[in-house]
Simulated assay, not measured.
Amino acid sequence: MIRILLADDEAMIRAGVRAILTTDTGIEVVAEADDGREAVELTLAHRPDVALLDIRMPRLDGLAAGAEIIRAIPTTGVAILTTFGEDDYLARALDSGARGFLVKSGDPRELIAGVHAVASGGAYLSPAIAARMIGKLRGSGLSRSTTARAQVQTLTERERDVLALLGAGLSNAQIARRLHLVEGTVKGHVSAILTRLDLANRVQAAIVAHDAGITID
């Protein structure tokens, strides 16, 4: 069972997100908060698998709350609920260690898929925002897809396989099963990918995979 902390200052949004999540029998919303400070306190109390946080909340915004949660409870994955037009906040969330970026008005299946990915140790970006985020993280010049494809060509064939699965939001354990490798070997490949591509974390790696067009289901 995936245990969720849901935080949004709008009761109707919380109700809608909760209704979507509870259509999956493997997900349980164990606590709800209407501000960022309460979200941190409830996360400390309930130790959920995933903290699903709105960006704009009173007392403490979702970015600051997420950063506190990640520092205090690294085992809780943080996913950010966003709306279109909040791209500038997403780079900050990425830097803080958030692993999920979900659009409130997106396909309900994306919300559920994102929660599963983050809970399993992977990363997830709603397709609608993945392409926009890459522009915030890469410089100008060549097109994003051209730049990403050039980066991917610097990897070994096995590293490209791992990167493609990172782009699909899989955890190290899931990648190991898919590629018939031991988990420690996958961890080594992920580390090599991040170093070679000069990336801070696996979410940035997932963005490169999306932009290069190498993600697989």
Rank of each mutant, 00 (worst) to 15 (best):
L163T: 02
D34N: 12
R3N: 14
A72L: 15
G100F: 06
V162C: 11
L125W: 02
V30L: 10
G66V: 06
S143L: 09
A128Q: 08
A65R: 00
A79R: 02
A150N: 12
G16K: 01
R177T: 15
R177C: 10
A72P: 05
E68H: 13
A45H: 08
D34R: 09
G26C: 08
D8T: 09
A205C: 11
T146L: 14
A64H: 12
R138P: 00
A33H: 02
R56Y: 07
G188Y: 01
D161T: 06
S96K: 11
V118R: 01
M133G: 04
R177S: 15
L166P: 00
I4R: 00
A19V: 01
R47M: 08
L42H: 11
D49Y: 05
D95G: 13
V118D: 02
A206S: 15
I70F: 08
L102F: 04
G114R: 00
A91S: 15
V78R: 00
E28L: 11
A123N: 11
A176M: 10
L181D: 08
T25F: 06
T146S: 10
I2H: 06
I80R: 01
G97K: 07
L166N: 03
A19R: 12
A168Y: 05
F101P: 00
L179N: 07
T215M: 08
G213K: 10
A19G: 11
E32D: 10
R178Q: 15
A11L: 13
E38S: 14
D161Y: 06
L142P: 06
R149F: 06
E68P: 03
V208T: 12
A7C: 15
D198G: 12
T23M: 10
V103A: 05
G167S: 10
R202G: 06
A130N: 08
T215Q: 12
A91D: 13
E110M: 08
L81H: 08
R99P: 04
G114K: 00
I2E: 05
P108Y: 06
L53S: 09
H189R: 10
G167Y: 03
T75S: 14
V208N: 01
G26Y: 05
G77M: 09
P108F: 04
V40F: 12
D35Q: 10
V78A: 07
E110P: 00
A200G: 09
T82G: 12
V40N: 02
Y124V: 00
R132M: 12
I175Y: 04
Y89C: 11
R56S: 15
I13G: 01
G36V: 04
